[in-house]
């Protein structure tokens, strides 16, 4: 920790625009870490973020065994980076949030020429336990 003030989730809005891919680290029950990019972290409310469940299957398997995740998000305007410590709470497979994220994913996929590849299966909702500057 640097002692610098960290923003709230709301104040970190640009980090959740998807301009720069985020990073997620998880760990299996036997303590094997896994780390990968994910296209976007979705702001849900003051205390929660959503991650799209597409096909990062090792990440999903790990989260079934160990509900904690560590995510790095980057502000595309100044390249400040933040580390979020998350705990899985629930999954949503329909509803307004699901529909919004499904549209976001298709938009990102279109930019990469990968339309139709990233099929949204669900949105996983996480409580943000801690925010720090990375």
């Amino acid at each position: 920790m640097t002692g610098e003030a960290v923003p709230t989730l709301r104040e970190m809005g640009p980090c959740f625009e998807g301009a720069v891919p985020a990073i997620i680290a998880t760990a299996s029950a036997d303590g094997t870490p896994n780390i990968t990019h994910l296209s976007k972290v979705h702001l849900v409310d003051d205390d929660h973020v959503g991650l799209s469940d597409q096909f990062f299957s090792k990440t999903n398997r790990n989260l079934c065994e160990n509900p904690y995740a560590c995510v790095l998000v980057l502000d595309p305007h100044n390249y400040d980076e933040y580390r979020l410590i998350l705990r899985y709470e629930r999954s949503e497979r329909r509803g307004k949030l699901f529909d919004r994220i499904e549209r976001d994913i298709e938009a990102i996929a279109a930019l990469c020429g990968m339309q139709g590849v990233f099929k949204l299966r669900g949105v996983d909702i996480y409580r943000v336990l801690e925010i720090e500057r990375a």
Partner: peptide, 16 residues
């Protein structure tokens, strides 16, 4: 380059 590690209590950590 992304680096994933894990603490003894199972908490994962992402760094570069």
């Amino acid at each position: 380059i992304l680096v994933g590690t894990v603490a003894p209590d199972g908490l994962p950590e992402a760094s570069r």
